[in-house]
Design a binder for these strands. Structure first.
Lengths: 196, 196, 196, 196
DNA sequence: CATGAATGAGCCTTCATTCAT
DNA sequence: CATGAATGAAGGCTCATTCAT
């Protein structure tokens, strides 16, 4: 029965559009075509639903990025395509991303409690993709020496900040994408690449 | 009478800590030491209070940044001290900043409607500080050729994203500050400065 | 489940006794033996309840009158028994009638909007009963020539005014009934009936 | 200082337009051009204001009717001009009259308590005008034998009912006036006037 | 006299959650 | 599994009234 999926899908859309607090469970039920009690029946409470939906979006971003990364030649390429993948995702699934920005799952929930730890884990796996690229780049000489952890954090900050500027302030996505790329390249590109 | 100020202060703290929707007006009243009706009496409704509080924080960030910028020698210096000012503010007034991140004044309110337009205006004045630095830097040769608008947007994205990483994910602020500085410097610094 | 009926019954009594604005929804719930939220759950809002209750009383008066009218011999008889039925109703269901007098459904609601149009319709059907009697009376010679529409309006005005005098001012109902009858008879009775 | 008058005037208009319960004291103050506290300061509470305003309208109707009655030749003339005066008042001061219909001063207040007894008194003096006409008419032979008290009550019922039909249901005032007159004349006119 | 800031009780409504069916 | 009637706590807001100035 597709009811569970219908509920999660509906919740994702509504949470993204109006935010968690402004989305009554009854609206989710209506949008999913099920009875009011059914949502709670399956998910025990509304917060669980937020967690699941949030996790799904994180996972989806992770998967999409993973796919784009595969054929990266150098470490620098990997890092740059990580950035590109982010904007590609934003371009195609703005709605889904809105969810991450608008909701405070990270804040209100105890991140150390199960199952929220899963959420953090997913996020770490996602960042890991970037860090691996950076590490590879440092090794293969395409990226200048730096601390991959810190750099990955700031790149991620830039991306999520750009998403906010686009989704909330209406800034042009393509400008943000191009300029972000320029920032990353300027910071990473090794001016003195390793000799062959 | 300090009652209005007490309400705004209380609202700022509570909105920042728990978010707008999770802060009952009655809690604000209690924290401000006034009766329940007093909050609405002065601000007509809860949303107004959010607007005022948000504006105040934006203004405060603007003012703090303006102060730090004054003695900048070159345009590059100005831009870098803009970034430094941001982290300085975050360091000292993390709570206040939380408000901007956690609340969706920009999303739920019609930004073009008065008085929300004021909010946008304040934000633009703030960004203008950075843009002026960039323009000056391009002119005085300390900053390489670029589009000040786009660059300022991405820098702002990076800053606000870093704030999120720090405040919500608990990332170390000093690492983020240092690395952000490195990004900005890498992107801006003119490799071929104008001759003397 | 009799809960809906219990709510409507309770609302009818309370609206009639204390008026719409002076009857908290919570009182209705209490009187109906249900939880506070149940009233709104079923009727969406308080005003709906007023409409439904008002309609029910109008309908009940219509039905009661219709029943009394059936065996009328002449048109004059029909008109007179219309009047008698009104006072009979007032005698037996004073409380219910109070509702019509004390509440301003007609004033505050847009009578032309659905479903308030239903209310007007019900009222017109009720008045129609009187008009038909008058028309029949003019035809069969028991009623003198007159405009049935205007006459029905004034008779209705007299009746509702009498109800007000009785219910609000405490005037004796039987005096009002007898004298009203005398007025109607004096105005309608044909002094020169048709020849046999 | 005209402040008290301004308040009473404003209250009259607002009570008539929106009803007592739906008129905040603050609106009255605003309309009267005084501060919020001033209304209560002068009238102690809102209910007093309703009483005063209601009394004023009753008095005004009484005065207007008294004026129209003066030159009545016969008792029947007096009664008929009483009715005419009512419609004349309704024609010219519909707003003021609305107040009597829409508000429940008579119901919610204890009519026997001072000062509400004054209201009843005013009403009785008004009705007395009609009763005197009827008594005179019976004496001078222009009105057929009847109980002046009962007849006056039903005439008053008819008038106030007609006002309701006009003000709330939108029925045409002139039709109501003409037909009401016909009813009164039919009931009162002596078919066999006293011989000279 | 008059003000208007301040109060706090009370109102209508929302909504996550429960539970009998 | 699923439903939806029912709940009741909580929320935002209104408003008559008070009172220091």
């Amino acid at each position: 029965m597709g009811k569970i999926k219908a509920i999660v899908d509906a919740a994702q859309i509504l949470f993204a559009e109006k935010g968690y607090e402004n989305t009554p469970v009854s609206d989710i039920a209506k949008a999913a075509g099920v009875a009011g009690g059914t949502v709670i029946y399956h998910f025990k409470n509304k917060e669980n639903l937020l967690f699941i939906v949030t996790w799904r979006v994180h996972y989806s971003l992770f998967k999409a990025t993973l796919k784009s990364l595969t054929p990266a030649r150098s470490g620098l390429d990997a890092a740059l395509s990580f950035v590109a993948a982010f904007f590609e995702y934003l371009r195609k699934r703005a709605g889904e991303f809105q969810l991450i920005l608008k909701n405070t799952a990270y804040d209100t929930l105890d991140v150390n409690a199960f199952p929220n730890a899963d959420l953090k884990l997913m996020h770490l796996r996602y960042l890991r993709l970037l860090q691996e690229g950076l590490e590879r780049g440092i090794e293969d000489g395409s990226v200048r020496a730096c601390d991959p952890m810190s750099v990955s954090h700031v790149i991620y900050a830039m991306l999520i900040g750009a998403a906010r500027l686009h989704l909330s302030h209406g800034e042009d996505l393509e400008n943000l994408a191009a300029e972000s790329m320029a920032f990353v390249r300027a910071r990473l590109e090794n001016p003195a690449p390793a000799l062959a």
